[in-house]
Measured scan of single mutants.
Amino acid sequence: HERALMVNRLQKLTRMLRVHPDPKWKQEQQELIKRLK
């Protein structure tokens, strides 16, 4: 369940980064990718 939330968050971040590349979001995205591996 928590994994699904993280995947959701990651997808949302990816969409937001396409619109507005924010370093903070980029960092969070990298963190999520690490944790999901």
Results as ranks from 00 to 15, higher is better:
K12P: 00
M6H: 04
L36W: 02
H20W: 12
I33G: 01
W25V: 12
L17K: 01
H20K: 11
N8P: 02
K12I: 13
E2F: 08
R35Y: 09
W25T: 06
E31I: 08
L32N: 00
R15Y: 06
N8S: 13
Q11H: 12
Q27S: 08
R35H: 06
V19S: 10
I33P: 00
E28S: 02
E28R: 03
K12Q: 15
R18D: 08
E2L: 13
Q27D: 07
Q30R: 09
Q30N: 08
R15V: 07
V7E: 13
T14A: 11
R9E: 05
L32H: 01
E31Q: 08
K34D: 05
L5T: 10
K26S: 04
R35D: 02
E31Y: 07
R9M: 10
I33A: 03
R18E: 09
D22V: 05
V7D: 03
R15D: 13
Q27E: 12
L17V: 03
P23H: 03
H20I: 09
E31T: 06
E28P: 01
M16N: 02
Q27R: 10
L10Y: 03
M16K: 03
P21H: 15
I33D: 01
E31P: 00
K24Y: 07
L5H: 15
L32D: 00
Q29S: 05
P23V: 05
K12Y: 15
Q27W: 06
L32Q: 00
Q30F: 04
Q29P: 00
I33Q: 03
W25M: 15
Q27I: 10
L36A: 01
R18G: 06
H20A: 07
K34N: 07
Q30Y: 07
L32A: 00
E2H: 07
Q27F: 11
L5A: 14
Q27K: 12
K26E: 10
P21V: 07
T14H: 05
Q30D: 07
Q11N: 08
R9F: 11
R35I: 15
M6K: 03
P23S: 05
L13P: 00
V7Q: 09
K24W: 05
H20L: 08
